[in-house]
Design a protein around this nucleic acid. Structure first.
Lengths: 187, 187
DNA sequence: TCCGTGATCTAGCGGTGCTAGAAAATCTAG
DNA sequence: CTAGATTTTCTAGCACCGCTAGATCACGGA
């Protein structure tokens, strides 16, 4: 490995480390606890180093976590849906599980400022991929399948965030999921 | 009016002013632009004065805006629903309109940390009221009306926030609303 | 061995929420 | 009207935030 290659590899490795640490801290203490100084500490460097990896600082780091999360979400949905065409239940379950197990990542995905449409052509690839997986899994149908997908997805998202923020009865969780699945299936 | 009464009235008036200004700034520039120093400036006092009105500072102010918003949301829903029992459309419309017209207030309501259940016994009164109005307007039915309400409300909330954050196709707005109304009506 | 280049650090800017303690204003009573 | 008690307000500052200019260091190539 040449010196140049070595340098590139090191950079990449550290970039991954930053993202990993940011994610870990965020999951356990919330995004407010993810500060540039603390991240710098975690990687054993000083603060400005972060800006050589992510020009827009903390926002860029959150963005990286979000994109990583999108990829994982897409995988989770596709795995759940495999060989179960025609039923929305696995997708619903997989989506809500992801949101519950990785609340900070989920937050990063959906609080990330975004000018372009989520599933649109201009979106980052992982986002389009997650949206596509969702659209497939939710079994879009009717004369306007895109609209159907958006509405079904909205219901999922609402359930995920209201549940996380203690706006819904914790004990009725499975009942809500059943009700939603039935609602999405009936029409 | 005695000196003591005068004092109390002045305090109340200023408290209202603080809440009003916080809300105005938040609506036009986002909650990040609502700083204690700026609010102090707006009321012509210095920063620490805010803490004599709201012990927990900015969080307390956001909370006050949120509660005010809850009351207004409840009113908006009840007005829309008046004399239209059995249809969810007016409620859906009123809810989404509120979220769209007062995004910062809507944000305060749902980003406010809250340990207790939203509609539960321990919640602040305006919150319980808004939840009650929503439950009525959404025409809860079936053998588990509470769960129904939570699911329907989640769909509304998801639609509101995803739409606001540019995650959905802007031009399909009315189509989504129609689809949701149909979905909630069909079952 | 020297030099240039890139990575890294030091130091600091302007901002945040928040608070202790001094100063000012106001009310109460003699 | 004045003196003292009480309430309110302000000054000054803490610790932290994201971010950056410029000095410094380390390393690869000639």
């Amino acid at each position: 490995m040449s010196a140049g290659e070595r340098r590139v590899a090191d950079r990449q490795q550290r970039e991954d480390l930053i993202v990993e640490r940011a994610r870990t801290i965020a999951e356990s203490e919330g995004w407010a606890a993810v500060t540039t100084r603390r991240l710098a500490d975690e990687i054993g460097r000083t603060q400005p180093v972060l800006y050589s990896h992510f020009q827009d600082g903390k926002a860029g780091i959150m963005r990286a976590v979000a994109l990583q999360g999108c990829t994982e979400l897409a995988v989770a949905i596709r795995r759940a849906t495999a060989g179960e065409a025609g039923t929305v239940a696995p997708t619903v379950q997989a989506y809500l599980d992801f949101a519950r197990r990785h609340p900070a990542v989920y937050d990063a995905i959906f609080s990330m400022p975004l000018d372009v449409e989520f599933g649109g052509r201009e979106s980052p690839e992982p986002m389009r991929d997650a949206f596509a997986a969702l659209a497939d899994g939710l079994d879009a149908h009717g004369d306007d399948p895109e609209t159907w997908t958006e509405v079904a997805w909205s219901a999922l998202h609402g359930l995920a965030v209201l549940s996380r923020d203690h706006r819904l009865r914790p004990r009725a969780r499975t009942a809500r999921i059943s009700a939603l699945v039935e609602l999405l299936t009936s029409s």
